[in-house]
Design a protein around this nucleic acid. Structure first.
Length: 529
RNA sequence: GGGCCCGUAGCUCAACGGUAGAGCAGGGGACUUUUAAUCCCUUGGUUCCGGGUUCGAAUCCCGGCGGGCUCACCA
């Protein structure tokens, strides 16, 4: 299939890392401790694109997504929220829901939101909650293995990451029987059935333990493995063979390297392969909901069509830094780019650009793209009251729009409306001015404005108006060297009504405004200063 | 201190060992229908610097410089 040496599409290159003829599992995960910023979508979208690509190459592959809802609440930003301080250190799934009508606990509340978000983006892995895995005992075998090898693991932490845990330390967190916290307990002394633990007041600085001391079985949900060891347990349980990740985790001496070492030495297995993706930044800053940078970005997902969000994440190679700022011309450019990739798909679905377009679609096997109107053109249409986009679009296409074309058009119009409202630069916007603008017109331009006054009220069809405007320009001699109407003619109209030398198509503009208003303005401007 | 990414046309980037390209911007032209519409043409590069490998380097290797991010506590 692969002919070998020419440069391959990034997702296809990952395929070569996977041994054929055996089952594969792609994994990703999320801790449901708050809303997902748009940057948090880069990983899942890349994982989904890879999963689709692996399947397309005929591999036997599952896509597993774990929801780490047994993790302790340790978020500083959450601590400051009302009623949250007392829950610091508790498992996320034990904290009350912000809205019981939506979900019964804090973790499910956030998890259900991002699961819905993922579904909207066409990402539909198998979801598994860590609380279920722990409580059902499905990870008990791995917990036992880890506890019996605690010394080895402690040595690995020391060697790979230079982290010195105290002697007797066990890489688990017990759920305190007294206060219910999981982040504050130190466990020791595994005897094959139970562990000793203490819920310490000063074990971590983000939560305070109750001081309870006890001994308990670490199984059936009474404890959870620490991050690195839990990672291994999940790989082992699901048989994970591929897992990409951000560079914060995959860096040398980082968390992933620690887990890899543990997996090799304790679980005696080869850890999953997977690329390291660069970060997605906004104004050069990493997004974090705690800093309010991501909050702004989260709105993007609500506004952008899902294909565009996927495209945004996939058109840039995962290993490359992705800088995104929704303001200004970012969106028109993104949509133009998207259209270019769509054309590339039509010409060659197996080209890099074609593949990127296909992976950007909600469906893994999409219909080819239909007729589209350029985003910037739509933004202009929206600013001319008389233009009916549906009609205009069909004129451009030269035929009826199909159902999906119409739906796309309307979504794009909606997007353009938001763009004009929130992000568009001033040059892209125009409005009819209520008061006479202070602009300089030449004598011929003034004569021209007076002359076209007769058209107002007598010509109603915008296209005919456009023709007549052209004719009048010739009549008053506002022409260039070749005898054709000069630019200044139309510029005069725009200056008079919009205050700028250009604008929407003049025939449409003039016929869509109030007749008396137009006449009065032409008079005022034609008379001169 | 470790790691990752980036440095190519005014801007955003492509080119992944074989004549440095595209989109946008700029310039010119066409369309008896304005425009940041459409179409055609076009200007523009010491590929950050210095070495090395090679018949051949933007590309691979070594060493710098500059910028951005990230890990060194937890997850």
């Amino acid at each position: 299939m692969s002919s070998g040496h020419e440069a391959a599409f990034w997702a296809d290159e990952e395929v070569t890392l996977l041994e054929p003829g055996r089952p594969h599992v792609v994994r990703d995960s999320k801790t449901p401790s708050g809303p997902v910023p748009i940057s948090g979508l880069r990983g899942p979208i890349i994982s989904d694109a890879l999963y689709r690509t692996f399947k397309r190459h005929g591999l036997d592959v599952r896509f597993v997504y774990t929801i780490d809802d047994y993790d302790p609440m340790d978020s500083q930003s959450m601590k400051e929220q009302a009623g949250m301080a007392e829950h610091m250190g508790e498992p996320l799934c034990a904290i009350p829901s912000p809205d019981p009508a939506v979900a019964s606990d804090f973790a499910d509340y956030h998890a259900s939101r991002f699961i819905a978000l993922f579904a909207g983006l066409g990402i539909t892995p198998e979801f598994h909650r860590m609380r279920d895995l722990y409580r059902s005992g499905m990870l008990d075998r791995q917990i036992d293995l880890v506890l019996r090898n605690a010394e080895t693991i402690r040595a690995i932490h020391k060697k790979v990451a230079n982290v010195d845990h105290p002697a007797g330390w066990l890489p688990i967190s017990v759920v305190c029987e007294n206060c219910g916290r999981i982040g504050t307990t130190l466990a020791t002394g595994y005897d094959g059935k139970t562990v000793a633990y203490e819920c310490k007041a000063d074990y971590v600085d983000w939560a305070e333990g109750c001081g309870h001391v006890g001994r308990i079985s670490p199984f059936k949900g009474n404890s959870k493995l620490l991050w690195n060891e839990q990672w291994c347990a999940q790989w082992d349980h699901f048989g994970v063979t591929y897992e990409e990740g951000g560079k914060d985790l995959l860096t040398a001496g980082g968390s992933r390297e620690r887990s890899n070492a543990i997996y090799r030495e304790v679980f005696k297995k080869e850890p999953p392969v997977g690329l390291q993706h660069e970060f997605f930044t906004l104004g050069g800053k990493k997004m974090a909901s705690s800093k309010g940078i991501g909050a702004q970005a989260l709105e993007i997902v609500e506004v952008y069509p899902p294909e565009l969000v996927r495209f945004l994440m996939l058109r840039t190679h995962p290993k490359r830094h992705l800088e995104f700022d929704p303001a200004g011309m970012t969106l028109p450019r993104l949509v133009d780019d998207y259209d270019r990739f769509a054309d590339a798909f039509i010409q060659g679905p197996e080209s890099d650009m074609g593949k990127t377009w296909r992976l950007s679609q909600i469906s893994p096997d999409p219909e080819p793209p239909g007729f589209r109107v350029r985003f910037q053109v739509l933004a202009d249409w929206l600013q001319i009251p008389s233009v009916k986009p549906d009609v205009e679009a069909e004129k451009r296409k030269g035929g009826r729009l199909g159902a999906s074309e119409l739906r796309d058009l309307h979504r794009r119009l909606e997007l353009a409306r938001v763009w004009l409202d929130r992000w568009a630069p001033e040059e892209a916007k125009f409005t009819v001015l209520h008061h006479k603008p202070a602009v300089q017109l030449s004598d011929p331009q003034r004569r021209y404005l007076v002359a076209i006054k007769d058209l107002i009220g007598s010509v109603h069809d915008p296209e005919e108006m456009q023709n007549q405007l052209y004719e009048v320009a010739k009549k008053v001699g506002l022409v260039n060297a070749e005898g054709k109407p000069a630019r200044e003619a139309f510029a005069a109209i725009y200056l008079a009504f919009i205050g700028k030398p250009n604008g929407p198509k003049a025939g449409w503009l003039l016929t869509s405004l109030d007749l008396d208003f137009v006449r009065r303005r032409l008079d005022e401007m034609g008379r001169g200063a």
